[in-house]
């Protein structure tokens, strides 16, 4: 029982870390960034380069974030900005960008699976149960991301503008909010978070040009079902991530892998606002 609870919470934490960047972009721009998986991959490779250079993890993580944010800002300025009036085209263009990034990573680093040494290894003893220390650390990481994020949105001027744009863009513009700047910063932030997530999962995962893709669908569905709010995303991750662990444990992991996508689609069909309050 305890194992399942720990599996569920750590899985939810991982899902939260991966989807939060997607969520902020969706919240502000109402588009789904299909290049999200590619930014996750970029972050992982940034971590790879960082650790190869012998940087400590305290520097590797900011490096990954900065790399992702720079890619994101560039993407917004060159591609996404021109497509706000065509949200479905924005999806396609970011998908194309994802392919391009994946191929560039392949050309630069090769297709081989690469390895990053984990900063925290081994297991810790929790209530008489040996459990992977790194997964436990991910819970803390998810909390830090959530707190930092909330602080940014509620405590800064930029956060205020961002929330204004999320609520009513026309009105915000009328009130003098520079919504194009908000979008640029948001997209950079979202991509940075994706890259940070990529760096954080490397010790559990492999580093290869397609590593981000398996996470993408779950992240999409979680963001859709959470309707663009951070607390709801946390709830969605815990509910659907928990369900995934339960199905994986008691039925089989293959069905478990589809749990989030299928449940989220059904939830949205029955209750279009998802887990958000009406």
């Amino acid at each position: 029982m305890l194992t399942i609870a720990l599996d569920a919470v750590t899985t939810a934490a991982l899902l939260f870390i991966i989807s939060s960047g997607l969520l902020i972009v969706f919240g502000v721009m109402k588009i789904i960034n299909f290049a999200h998986a590619a930014f996750v991959t970029v972050g992982a490779y940034a971590a790879l380069v960082g650790t190869r250079l012998g940087l400590p993890w305290a520097l590797v993580l900011p490096l990954a974030f900065a790399t992702g944010a720079a890619c994101g800002a560039l993407t917004e300025a060159t591609i996404v900005r021109r497509l706000y009036q065509r949200p479905l085209d924005a999806i396609l263009a970011t998908w194309g960008l994802g392919t391009v990034i994946g191929q560039l990573v392949t050309l630069i680093f090769g297709r081989e699976v690469q390895f990053v040494q984990a900063p925290i290894t081994g297991t810790i003893d929790l209530f008489g149960l040996d459990y992977s220390a790194y997964r436990i650390a991910m819970i803390a990481a998810a909390v830090i991301v959530a707190v930092a994020f909330t602080g940014l949105l509620s405590g800064t001027r930029l956060g205020l503008s961002t929330r204004a744009v999320i609520m009513n863009e026309m009105l915000a513009q009328g009130l003098g909010v520079d919504s194009s700047r908000v979008r640029l910063v948001t997209f950079a932030l979202g991509s940075g978070l994706a890259a940070l997530a990529g760096a954080l999962i490397t010790p559990l995962s492999s580093v290869d040009p397609n590593m981000g893709l398996p996470w993408l669908i779950s992240a999409f569905m979680l963001v859709m079902v959470s309707g663009g709010s951070l607390p709801t995303l946390a709830v969605s991750c815990i509910v659907l991530g928990g369900l995934q662990v339960i199905v994986s444990t008691f039925v089989n992991p293959i069905l478990g892998g589809l749990t989030i996508a299928i449940c989220a689609a059904i939830v949205l069909r029955i209750r279009p606002e998802g887990f958000a309050r009406a």
Binding site: I79, R82, L83, D89, L92, A93, W95, G96, L97, G98, T99, V100, Q103
Partner: peptide, 10 residues
């Protein structure tokens, strides 16, 4: 293919 897609859409 990826670059062509982005170019066409933009």
């Amino acid at each position: 293919i990826g670059i062509a897609l982005i170019t066409v859409i933009l």
